[in-house]
């Protein structure tokens, strides 16, 4: 066992996968020097500049070249420096990577992993803070993972690298160095598409992912201490494909569902979760399926006071728990 934070766990996952499989390589902007978050630290020294590869500053090319390389015996991990910068590559991700297998009737596959730090809370302003999971979670043929803990990050990144299809791997950058966790020394994976109950409870099911999972756990403790409400917290971990089973099983038990996400409210991925619960667990519900999210403004402004005002936090979540518990 060794204690690691999330960015170290991600670094370890890549290191171990690149050792395990010589086809695995990493490409992106500044990755050779360790990357702006140090997630690729040491990989160029270990594997050489060909396998830890500095590309020109061109996101569409990073993804497009990764797609081509994946067709010819390479297992690429493409790093997009910030999720906010992924948009020029949307054509390559949505129209190419996610459609290649389908449009060729299974003739071609595209085993690429696209890693991107995402999320608010580091004074990143409107271009180093975006949540992009709802945009890409809508796309068939693409798997979308949102990690928030060192264990899940390492296990899921390994699964993503080994997956035969494209995976968008979103790493909440505020969670990079906030938490440490003991990780097993031996090889382990966490399957894509499985949620995890991070805290058991009986009164309310709280469904969340990313940084909000940490805030939700705090809020659940507060609700327990102050109001005696027992909240079950589910970390989705994978946005697409969504683990409906774990969500529905819990809601059937508690009868109440609270969905918490950092992205702005309208059309956020929590809306999909809420719709599934409304449609498939209607008989079990004792209160309105409720969402806590950011207001519908571009998330997030640079000034701390503005950013804090917008983002969900443990207090706002605890209040929503209280309101829902009152039903």
């Amino acid at each position: 066992m060794a204690e690691k934070n999330m960015v170290e766990a991600i670094n370890d996952a890549m290191l171990e996968e690149m050792k395990r499989d010589p086809r695995v390589m990493l490409l992106g902007e500044d990755v050779g020097g360790g990357g702006v978050f140090r997630a690729t630290q040491g990989l160029r020294d270990e594997f050489g500049p060909d396998r830890c590869f500095d590309t020109p500053l061109a996101e569409s090319a990073i993804i497009g070249v990764a797609i081509g390389a994946s067709l010819n015996g390479i297992v690429p991990i493409a790093e997009i420096q910030f999720a906010d910068f992924i948009h020029p590559a949307m054509d390559q991700i949505v129209s190419e990577a996610a459609r290649l297998r389908y449009r060729s009737n299974g003739g071609w596959g595209c085993p690429i992993t696209v890693r991107a730090p995402y999320g608010s809370g580091i004074h990143g302003g409107p271009y180093h803070s975006q949540s992009i999971e709802a945009i890409y979670g809508h796309v068939p043929g693409l798997k979308v993972v949102c990690v928030a803990t060192p264990y899940d990050a390492k296990g899921l990144l390994k699964s993503a690298i080994r997956d035969p299809d494209p995976v968008l791997f979103l790493e909440h950058k505020r969670a990079y160095r906030l938490y440490r966790q003991d990780l097993p020394d031996d090889d382990f994976t966490v399957p894509i598409g499985e949620a995890e109950v991070k805290r058991e409870g009986s009164d309310i099911t709280l469904i969340t992912y990313g940084m909000m999972m940490h805030h939700s756990l705090k809020a659940a403790e507060t609700a327990q201490d102050e109001d005696g409400a027992s909240v079950e917290v589910i970390d989705l971990r994978t946005i697409s494909p969504l683990d409906k089973k774990t969500v529905l099983k819990s809601v059937e038990k508690t009868g109440k569902a609270l969905v918490v996400y950092e992205d702005n409210l309208t059309g956020g991925f929590g809306a999909e979760v809420a719709a599934i619960i409304a449609q498939e667990a209607f008989e079990f519900l004792d209160g309105p399926v409720t969402r806590v999210a950011s207001p519908d403004v571009p998330i997030s402004p640079y000034a701390g006071v503005l950013e804090e005002y917008l983002l969900p936090n443990p207090e706002k979540i605890a209040k929503a728990i209280r309101d829902l518990a009152a039903y």
Partner: peptide, 25 residues
């Protein structure tokens, strides 16, 4: 012959990618 799509020029980085893989390998 790699499957193509309708958006124009999207196949060009793919060709670069297979060549890139070939060079690495």
């Amino acid at each position: 012959i790699v499957s193509g799509s309708a958006p124009v020029a999207t196949q060009m980085p793919h060709a670069v990618g297979t060549a890139f893989a070939g060079k690495l390998r």
